[in-house]
Design a protein around this nucleic acid. Structure first.
Length: 637
RNA sequence: GGCGAUGUAGCUCAGUCGGUUAGAGCAUGCGGCUCAUAUCCGCAGUGUCCGGGGUUCGAAUCCCUGCAUCGCCA
């Protein structure tokens, strides 16, 4: 089995702002790479932006900006979005990066030297308004449809990539590796394309028409066009040809793309790799489109809702779950707020959330919240169905996750959640609790349920990392260990007896469809805690600063307090009540925001010189931190 | 215009390269339980498998054709 995994999203073209499609592709890659980490594989996850070409020049001009400052701006929007979606990418590449440009030049030269790039003149109908060639069929009454003007016949010379030479090789390769392109429908589509002779690919633009691109290393009058520039990001980001990452990760490369760019990735790219003497990727994973049904979108938050905004209303994990569960990978799907809410209520609130809640509530009611001591024979007798079910579920889940069939993997998990709900009804713990002689059985039943929930918490981790972590905390699992490792999940009976578990939480609040959406939950909470108005001067008296945590330790006998050393215009000590939500070792190196001029107070005998800013909700506390690393001591304005 | 895909329950979709009475979830109706987030469990349905031909003992599945929707290419 491979120990290494490399996955990419396409690099997104920055002539438009990020939308649902970008988010879906990127979440798919994120889920896949988190799953691979569960398997203990070393993973590398790449995304980025594609920044050259005439459409960028146009879009920049429309906004009155230079191409460079325009692409900087839009690229930053993508980069900012991914943390909001909890994307765990390891790198973010831009095609305007110097290292990328160097790789493109190098590969072009290599293929040119090998004789697979040639220079050729052709004649065509060119519209100077559109700055492009037309074929006769595209014209309306012989005129350009945009400019109502007859295009001129001009001659132009360009460089072409001799793809035709590799056509038979590619057909053989696809036949030899049936899951090279998957799902199968897209493999068939590519093979259908390849039934006709492949035309050579025009890979250049004269600088008289386009300057915003990478100059050809063998002809400074031309820039390279689109695919040679864009596709090579997948190897340049790894440091091709000599970089250690390239050597380690490239042999295991998988790409995720939407079906609109099947042809470049399924045909041009493997041929480019072959021509450049680079091994081809392992898998191309192709997904369908989300058709956005705006008639089923609420308009309550002031304007027409963008699908991406719904993550703020219903929660990121629910949003990620919906995208992964509702689309059969590879097929088109329709997106609506209604469908999202139905999924959230049925699968998350009712099935999983309520199960979690009822099991923990019973543990508190019958065993004062402590994981009971249970007799192994009893556990085996009364819990073996859940144990066997878990093993089977993990097997099905893994099988589907490996092939990107996320919808099936999640369906398998929810089948098991249903099994657990039926188990509760069948065992009727509330009846067992009535007779003291049945306490052993009751303990075995609840232990089995807790084990089942532990397994579920791990299996949902790739899709819903935050919820998985909440479940983990409430099951009393060691926060320091990666509870989601598949090898750990498989061993049954590893929750230590005697552990005191926190009270039940509502993992997913049910959305009341009748009165939903009037006010987002967060806004409602804000209203309740709204304070009296203050003026700017009053606010200005609070000295908010960024500090970097240099040292953190628990304070003996204090449940909630941690002692932190921070760097903020020099070292200082802060006592913070965050021990329930943050382990000391996870804090060192992090940046936080503190109230720097708060009057020092002694807590547990330690002088605290400031206060950390954090927000709290039913899932616990979350620290406030700057969007990127800034100088320690920087003041907030 | 060429190539390709899709069309299945009220809704969203599965359906393993032809094989019993076509399935799931949601929504709907009825019943049960009380540990739980008005949750959970059980039962009940409903179908011109887009239309029309054809191949076959047998077609949602294969072939032809028409319609609708979508994508890619030119």
């Amino acid at each position: 089995m491979d120990r290494v995994f490399y996955i990419t999203t396409p690099i997104y073209y920055v002539n438009a702002r990020p939308h649902l499609g970008h988010a879906y592709t990127t979440i798919v890659a994120d889920v896949a790479s988190r799953y691979q980490r569960m398997q203990g594989r070393e993973t590398f996850f790449l995304t980025g932006t594609d920044e050259h070409g005439d459409k960028i020049v146009e879009a920049a001009r429309a906004e009155g900006m230079s191409p460079k400052s325009y692409v900087d701006k839009i690229s930053a929007e993508f980069r900012r979005l991914w943390p909001e979606l909890n994307i765990s990418n390891d790198a973010f590449i831009r095609t305007t990066d110097a290292a990328h440009i160097a790789v493109v030049e190098r590969v072009l030269q290599k293929i040119y030297d090998a004789g697979d790039i040639y220079f050729s003149e052709y004649e065509g109908l060119y519209c100077f308004g559109c700055e492009r060639f037309y074929v006769p069929r595209e014209l309306v009454d012989g005129k350009c449809p945009d400019h109502q003007k007859a295009p001129e016949r001009i001659k132009e010379s360009n460089y072409f990539f001799r793809m035709s030479r590799y056509q038979d090789w590619l057909i053989d390769h696809i036949r030899k590796y049936p899951d090279f392109i998957r799902p199968e429908r897209y493999r068939n589509e590519v093979l259908a394309f390849l039934r006709d002779p492949l035309e050579d690919l025009c890979i250049s633009r004269p600088k008289s028409r386009l300057q915003w691109g990478i100059t050809l290393p063998f002809d400074s009058n031309y820039v390279t066009y689109v695919w040679f520039d864009a596709l090579l990001n997948y190897v340049s980001a790894l440091g091709y040809p000599e970089g250690p990452r390239f050597r380690k990760f490239w042999p295991y490369a998988q790409h995720v793309v939407a079906k609109d760019i099947l042809k470049p990735h399924g045909i041009y790219w493997p041929i480019m790799l072959k021509a450049a003497g680079i091994p081809v990727y392992r898998h191309l994973n192709v997904h369908g489109y989300w058709n956005v049904d705006r008639t089923k979108m609420s308009k309550s938050i002031g304007n027409v809702v963008e699908p991406l905004d719904l993550k703020n209303i219903y929660g990121l994990d629910a949003f990620r779950f919906f995208l992964m569960r509702d689309m059969a990978f590879g097929l088109d799907s329709s997106f609506s707020e209604k469908a999202l809410v139905e999924r959230l209520n049925a699968d998350l609130a009712n099935d999983l959330g309520n199960l979690f809640s009822r099991v923990l509530a019973m543990l508190h009611r019958y065993f004062k919240g402590r994981v009971p001591e249970s007799d192994p024979a009893m556990c085996d007798e009364f819990g073996k169905t859940l144990c066997a079910g878990a093993r089977q579920t993990i097997a099905h889940y893994a099988q589907h996750m490996e092939t990107m069939a996320f919808h099936s993997a999640l369906a398998a998990v929810w089948e098991y959640i249903g099994e657990m709900n039926r188990y509760v009804d069948y065992m009727m713990p509330w009846e067992l609790a009535k007779s003291p002689s049945k306490e052993g059985q009751l303990a075995a039943v609840l232990c089995s349920l807790l084990e089942g929930l532990r397994v579920v918490s791990g299996l949902i981790y790739p899709v819903m990392p935050a919820t998985a972590a909440t479940m983990q905390r409430h099951l009393g699992l060691d926060a320091g260990k990666p509870f989601y490792r598949l090898s750990t999940l498989e061993s049954w009976g590893c929750l230590p007896a005697g552990t005191l578990l926190p009270k039940a939480v509502s993992l997913f609040p049910r959305i009341d469809i009748k009165q939903k959406k009037r006010t987002p939950p967060s806004a409602r909470a804000q209203e309740e805690t709204r304070k009296a108005e203050i003026d700017l001067e009053a606010f200005g008296r609070v000295d908010l600063r960024v500090a970097t945590v240099t040292h953190a330790e628990a304070i003996p006998k204090a449940k909630k307090l941690l002692k932190l050393q921070v760097d903020c215009d020099g070292p200082r000590t802060i006592v913070a009540g965050i021990a329930k939500d943050y382990a000391p070792q996870n804090l060192v190196g992090r940046q936080v925001v503190i109230v720097a001029n708060l009057k020092p107070v002694k807590l547990m005998g330690i002088l605290s010189q400031g206060m950390l800013l954090a927000v709290g909700d039913d899932k616990g506390l979350a620290l406030i931190h700057p969007d990127r690393e800034v100088a320690a001591g920087a003041s907030i304005r």
